[in-house]
Simulated scan of single mutants.
Amino acid sequence: MTNFADSLKKEIARVARKELREEIASLRKISVVQRSEIAALKKQLKAVQTQVSQLSKGQGRGEGEKVVVMPRAEQEPSAVKSRRKPGRKVVFTGERLKAQRARLGFTQEQMAKLLEVSSLSIWKWESGGASPRASRVPGILERMALGKRAAASQIAA
């Protein structure tokens, strides 16, 4: 009886594997098709994003005016806007702060007085250990855009 039971189990397993193999093959085919469709969609998305960024930068001009997309939250002070190209967003970075401080010839303490923060904050921002609050960034960018004389007069005041 055990030979018959073993033979029956083996036959059931063989038939199950055969049926599963067919099911798995069809699932693999579907998976390959879906992956290729996903890859094509990703390429289309990347192309659309490139077009949107070009339009927002004003490079993809059609007839007439430049298209500049800038939400209200990203708008910057007028002093910073006037010194840059339209459609470009100025971002605060520690390297930029350090370069501006060097250009002005200021110490960290003098830059801290100009930006109305502590000299420790300046050090942390420049070293990348911290970044200013989002609410303070527009004011900081506006003061960083000042020339040497204007910055020196603000420190003296």
Rank of each mutant, 00 (worst) to 15 (best):
R21P: 00
A102I: 09
V80E: 03
R143Q: 10
P71G: 12
K124A: 04
A40W: 02
P71M: 11
K124F: 09
T50D: 14
A39P: 00
E65L: 13
I140T: 00
K148D: 05
Q51L: 14
G58F: 04
V48T: 11
G139Y: 11
S56T: 07
A47L: 06
A112E: 04
W125I: 00
K43E: 11
E76K: 05
E23F: 07
I155L: 04
Q54M: 14
R14T: 09
R14A: 10
K10M: 14
R88D: 05
A157M: 10
Q54V: 01
L115S: 02
S131L: 06
R72G: 07
S131P: 01
A112Q: 07
E74V: 12
K42H: 03
R96M: 05
R35W: 00
A73I: 08
E19V: 08
A151W: 08
E65R: 07
G58D: 13
L97D: 01
Q75K: 15
E19L: 14
E109I: 06
Q44G: 03
E76R: 13
A73Q: 10
Q44T: 15
Q34E: 07
A39R: 14
S36P: 02
R14S: 08
M70K: 13
K113W: 02
E116M: 13
A157W: 08
T50I: 09
E23L: 11
S131M: 13
L115C: 02
K66P: 03
E95V: 10
E19K: 15
G139M: 06
I12H: 06
G60F: 15
A99R: 10
I140C: 06
